[in-house]
Amino acid sequence: MNQHDHRAQYREAPEPEEGTRAIPKIVLAWIAILIVWGVGYYAWQIGKPLLGGDSRTAVAMAPGESGPANSESPDASEGSGTSGSQSSGAGSGSAGATPDGAAIYSAQCSACHQANGQGVPGAFPPLAGSEWLQADAAIPVAIVHDGLQGEIEVAGNTFQGVMPRFGGKLSDAELAAVLSYARSEWGNSASEIDPATVAEHKERFGDRGDWSAGELKEVFGEP
């Protein structure tokens, strides 16, 4: 046998085998503890809802927390102040409290109009210095509630795009709060808007589709 050829096999230890040390008591104790814990953990889950998903609680559908779902139809806005508060992401949903306009703006509007209200040049109109926003309250309410489509000139620049409607997503109070916020930020100085103005708007126009700049001028006059 050529030792050189087998040197690696030659120098190594034998094939491994096992000793016969007994299982330590502490391992057995640990197994016992885990079994007891496992039974307890199962028992703790007894009575939890079987449908819907893991760790679902009834909180999920507590009043005013079912999110946009309960404002699918226009009449849902009677629960103003609470309905749809979740969709705002503002976490301000406790009934009766005044919605936080800044938080709603941050969650719903800032993606396009940006946190500083400057919009995105060429794509999303600025709110800072916007003549439409600071016009008579009826105009911004109409735009945000029903949406807007088509060409529009804002602060000297022309924009072509789609503003989605928030009528089904925000309650009257939230809509008023976010508009009031935008009308007083970034150098804007227009009056606050009252939830009643939103309610009036709804009464007058019902469930109407998008506005266009021309229609707005026709109905409400020049901004």
Binding site: L51, T57, A60, M61
Partner: peptide
Amino acid sequence: TYPAPTLPKVP
């Protein structure tokens, strides 16, 4: 954003 019928309901 529609309601989910299988979520647990409040009493």
